[in-house]
Structures are given as C-alpha cells and as structure tokens.
Write a protein that binds this DNA or RNA. Structure first.
Lengths: 172, 172
DNA sequence: CTCCTAGGTTCGTTCAATGAACTCAAAAGA
DNA sequence: TCTTTTGAGTTCATTGAACGAACCTAGGAG
C-alpha cells in the first residue's frame, strides 16, 4: 500500500500513532468521544461526516483499542462507542492541538476548559517528573533501543542533543 | 472544496488546527524541524516523502507562520526552514502524540527524551494554572464566545459539563 | 400495512498522494 | 571548455481514499 496511511520506514512512535490517528476525521471523532458523544448517529450529526467514513473510523479505533463498542440496549439492538483508558489518554493530544489552534490560528472558541475543582484555566505542558513544567529548549533527546534509519541526517540526529539544535549531517 | 483538507462547519479550534496540521506528513515535518532538520533535502532524506508533497507542506507551514524560510547562503542561493515561536509551541502536541504511540501501539523508540538539567524523564500533561497537573476527569468544559453548531447533539454539549460525561440530546 | 429510526453498506465521481522524469542555476571536476 | 553534481524544486500520469446520494435491514410505532 504505497499510497495511503502508512508511514513505512519511519522510525518513531509519532509515525506509528499517526498511522492510526492521522487520517482525516479520526482525531475529531476522538475529540467528540471525550466530549461525551457515544452513538453513531450523534457522531454523524456533530461531524457532518460521510457515514462510510465514520463507520470505518469507528471500527479502526475500536480495533486499535481506543474505543469499545458496547450494546446498551438489546431490542432493538443499539450500540455505543466508549473511550477506553487508552483513548482517554489522548486528552493531552486533543487539548494541546486545540489550544495551539486557538492561539495561533484564531477565531473564537465554542468551548473553553477549566479545572472543575478551582475554576482556573488549563495549559498544555511537558513536565519533568522531578522539576515540573519545562520549556522545549530544556529537552534533551538521546538514542533509544529501537531501530534507526541509516542515512546521514538520521545518523547525525542519533547523538544526544537538545531539541532545536541544528542537525549537521556529515557528508558521506 | 468539498473533498480535502477543510473541516467546514466544525466549530472548534481543533478542526482549524487540523486543516493546517492534519494533512499527511505535516506533523512529521514539524517533528523533524523540532529535532533540528532545516534543509529541504534533509527533510526529504529523513522522510522519504515525494518532493512535490514536501514542497507543498513546507510552503503551507511557512504561509501559516509555523516555519520561516531563510537564505543562509547567497551564492548559490540556499534556503533553510526554521521553526517560528508558534512552531516551537507545537512541541507538546508532537510529544504527547509520540508518547501515546509508544505506550499504546508499541515498538521500541529510536529516540527518548529527558530533562537536560536533571536527566529525569518527561510526561505530557494538562496543567491547571493554580494546582498543577490534573486528570481528564477533573476538566470542566463550558461554552465560549465562538459560534456554535445548532443541532440537538451540539446543543446538549453547550451546557457546562465534565469531560467524558455522556451527551444526552433532547429529542427535537 | 406502512412509516420511522439506528446503524450501517454500495457505488460512481472527484481529488490528493505517489514516484519517476524533468528543470534550473551555480559550482566543481576533467 | 565541457560535463557532472547538488540543492531545490515542478510536471505529469496513475491510484486509491473521501465524498455523498442511494440503498439496506431489523425492530418498533401508528
């Protein structure tokens, strides 16, 4: 399948996540699920999405364990799609992308978010497990155990380095 | 443009962000830019992406102010693509999606991340500006000033409510 | 007996992704 | 001087996914 949804040859978990979530409509389906939408026809009404595409996305997400399809009424048989724990963990993705759109593309938001306990506003962030929130410039990348691409650019990237530090490939 | 990259009729900033970032390859281009890749041919080598698509993605990202195209050498004229501040702010998106892929899709990571100052590991999170990191279940959504869709499901969603709370549309 | 609803599937049309080939300008090599 | 290489693209025919309108099915409801 040369054309389409796979990113064969990519060596990062982002590309693997995008093979599932990077298709058109998929993240909006997950977003609506986080917002409480559960039924086929409710997704369809909210999203104005072709039924065939919605059907495909729901079954792919179900197959990947992001959603769970459950019978909520035996007769007539009716189903709902619930987020699994793995699906709920997509919240930081949905939230950070939405916040970025609000800050950098503009338009007014139809929905805002706050901490239910105290009412204060929310921010997407990357936290150090010891020090709390940190900036991208304080992130260091280093090689993990996984397979790596073997080209000059990737080799130059496989030394421990700060985020944003320019890659300087050695001429082969 | 009925087919393609627009999500016309969607009312959230996520859909606006996805019109730019949701196309195939776009987030992987941003990822590589965060990792330090700057030149057309270096992106091409890393990504195995058709040149025409890479050209399109780079100019769309440049047009949207995520990247900046800069001459770094006058003769022969050579350009590089640098992330703007707005582009750097996509780091939480890239990181949270990558972490999700690592946790839930699996495979070994080619690259890992740590806090440069202390070496501890990083976590994607949603922080309350007052209380620190919070769980999705503690997020409350409430209507903002932006335009809203007018269908039974969207109307039911426009009351203040917790994330994940089931939407129960009133029969029209 | 007919209509309606939830939850899909089928199918012809359209448009974006693909990859191979081509372009162009400057520099380096022979 | 002629040829090749390199960076950075553009052009073009092919393919497969998204679109949307129509169709299907099973179980109530009127």
């Amino acid at each position: 399948m040369a054309l389409g949804k796979d990113y064969l040859g990519q060596d990062c978990s982002l590309s693997r996540a995008l093979e599932l979530l990077g298709e058109r409509w998929t993240l909006l389906v997950v977003q609506n699920a986080l917002y409480g939408v559960r039924r086929f026809s409710d997704f369809q009404v909210r999203l104005d999405i072709p039924r065939a595409v919605l059907s495909d996305r729901l079954s792919r997400l179900t197959g990947a364990g992001v959603l769970e399809k459950r019978l909520y009424q035996p007769s007539p048989p009716r189903h709902e799609y619930l987020l699994t724990d793995s699906g709920v963990e997509l919240w930081p993705v949905i939230f950070s992308l939405g916040m970025w759109g609000r800050r950098h593309i503009g338009g007014e938001s139809a929905r805002l978010f706050r901490h239910a306990d105290c009412g204060a506003k929310l921010l997407p962030s990357t936290d150090c497990s010891e020090c709390g929130p940190i900036a991208p410039g304080d992130v260091e990348m280093y090689p993990g155990p996984g397979p790596k691409r073997d080209d000059p650019v990737s080799r130059a990237m496989n030394r421990p380095r700060r985020l944003l530090e320019p890659v300087v490939p050695e001429p082969s």
